[in-house]
Design a protein around this nucleic acid. Sequence first.
DNA 1: GGCATACATGATATAAAATAACATGACAAG
DNA 2: CTTGTCATGTTATTTTATATCATGTATGCC
Lengths: 170, 170
Amino acid sequence: MTSETHSTSAQDATPIGFQEHDHQACVETALATAEVRCNEAGLRLTPVRRKVLEMLVQEHRALGAYAILDRLRDEGFGSQPPVAYRALDFLVQHGFAHKIERLNAFVACAHPGAMHSPAFMICRNCDAVAEAQSAPVKGMLGAAARAAGFEIERMVVEAEGLCPDCTEKA
Amino acid sequence: MTSETHSTSAQDATPIGFQEHDHQACVETALATAEVRCNEAGLRLTPVRRKVLEMLVQEHRALGAYAILDRLRDEGFGSQPPVAYRALDFLVQHGFAHKIERLNAFVACAHPGAMHSPAFMICRNCDAVAEAQSAPVKGMLGAAARAAGFEIERMVVEAEGLCPDCTEKA
DNA sequence: GGCATACATGATATAAAATAACATGACAAG
DNA sequence: CTTGTCATGTTATTTTATATCATGTATGCC
């Protein structure tokens, strides 16, 4: 179950998704980007927060708060729920991570910094999560909202199904 | 089934959640429809299930499982969590209700019987919920999914914001 | 430097949401 | 009337999330 290492440093090329890619670079880039963005915005990417982000980026899957907490403990950080939740709140609030409502779990943001309304594809078999863009105000829902006078502030779009790998194996 | 009913005017997309309507009739229709559909499908709309559905239809808002449980107790039904969760599971499974992931709560289905992929507008202030249609496989996410080889089985689409009433009051 | 302030973390406790597991009851089919 | 199936009742526990208060740490001001 633990696909901790996507050892294949293959050419990525595919937009966003379940394909193999240079994971090491992926992790490093994400962390570096976060550092820069925090500096720019006057935010503090403290050790706990950085570690949590690293964990999320490392896995390309949704991790529950308590899974994160376990690993924090292993790394010598505080081991009580608020430690994990606070770090996650920070990351979510500033766009470095997203909460997957369907799973009560969290993933690293795939497009940090980009103003975006994320949509997710969640594999029900292996819990892999891919992030795509959604077009919130366009389409039927936007039309319905305008018709009803509802002001959309935030969108949750989550598709559940089978990722390519799991489809193959089935 | 996917797009057969989409040649509709904007009027059809209007949600029933945020507007005045004959609520008494609304409740009765919903329950009657459920009865019929259960009979047709050989399902048993037992007292608990019926009561839970009634409660959900009565309020046009999301109710948590424990709110429902409290009321069940008041009505003389069992008062332990599984009682509520089982009834809710039944209703959700057979399309009489939906779970709002964002709230960990449940609403009656506004279009029971119709094969549909629901989208919700949730008022962050008063918790009112309106149901609209979403077009799951169309749009950006569908395209991204096809490109990635992801097979969508189920969609969660939830818009959070302010309903007309609460917008006015603010 | 000493001090005030704001923010971050640590730690205890508890709330809220959901499920596991097993026992009992209702009811139709054979 | 017995058997099988489905629904309900009940106990216990797990999982997810917050409230609260105490402590620590960086920063700016005097």
